[in-house]
Simulated scan of single mutants.
Amino acid sequence: MIHLSNVSKTFQLKGQSLDAVKDVDLHIEKGEIFGVVGYSGAGKSTLVRLLNLLEKPTNGTVKIADYEMLKLSNRELKRARQEISMIFQHFNLLWSRTVRENIAFPLEIAGVSKAERYEKVAELAKLVGLEGREDSYPSQLSGGQKQRVGIARALANEPKVLLCDEATSALDPKTTNAILDLLHDINQRLGLTIVLITHEMNVIQKICSRVAVMEDGSVVEQGNVLEVFRHPQEEITKSFVKQLTDPEDSNQAIEEQLEQEKGTVVRLTFFGDDAEKPVVSELIRACNVTVNILQGNIANTQDGSYGSLFVSIEGDAAQLNEAIEFLQDHQVEAEVISRA
Rank of each mutant, 00 (worst) to 15 (best):
G217F: 10
V128K: 01
Q140Y: 00
G150D: 02
D165N: 09
Q222T: 10
K174E: 15
V161A: 07
G223Q: 04
E215K: 14
T168K: 09
K174M: 12
K174A: 14
A115H: 04
T198A: 08
E119C: 06
K146D: 02
N202Q: 14
Y118G: 00
D135H: 14
T193N: 10
T198V: 09
K206P: 13
S142G: 12
L163W: 05
M201Q: 04
N177D: 14
G132V: 12
V219C: 03
H184D: 14
A212M: 03
S209P: 08
Q147V: 10
L180S: 09
L130I: 11
A212E: 03
N187G: 05
E215G: 04
S136F: 14
V149E: 04
L155V: 13
R117N: 05
C208S: 07
V225D: 06
E116N: 11
L127N: 01
K120E: 14
G143Y: 03
S169M: 06
L141R: 10
E123T: 09
C164L: 11
K160M: 11
V128I: 07
L171I: 13
S136R: 12
V211F: 08
K120I: 05
I151G: 07
R117W: 06
L124Y: 02
R148Q: 09
N157I: 06
G191W: 13
M214G: 06
K146G: 00
L182Q: 07
S142D: 09
Q140I: 01
K120G: 00
R117Q: 15
A212T: 08
I194W: 04
C164D: 07
L190P: 06
A212Q: 08
V211S: 07
K114Q: 11
V128P: 02
P173F: 08
V128H: 01
G129S: 05
L196K: 05
S209K: 15
G191R: 12
V219F: 01
I151C: 05
I179A: 10
T198F: 02
L192V: 08
A156Y: 00
I194S: 03
L192C: 10
G129I: 09
E116V: 10
S136Y: 15
L130Q: 03
A125L: 02
K160Y: 00
L190R: 14
R210S: 09
K126M: 02
G132K: 06
K146Q: 11
R117E: 13
V149D: 01
K160N: 13
V220R: 01
Q205R: 15
C164V: 12
A122T: 14
V219E: 08
I151Q: 02
N177A: 15
L162M: 13
L192I: 14
V161K: 10
D165E: 08
I186S: 11
L171F: 08
A115C: 00
N177Y: 10
E134Y: 02
E166R: 09
D185K: 15
L155R: 04
D216T: 12
E200A: 14
H184W: 00
L196F: 04
V161P: 02
E221P: 05
V161Y: 06
Q188K: 15
M201N: 03
C208L: 13
S209T: 15
A212D: 05
V121N: 04
T176S: 15
V219W: 00
K114G: 05
A156R: 00
L182G: 09
A212K: 01
Y137P: 11
S142H: 06
E119K: 13
A115V: 13
N187C: 07
E158P: 01
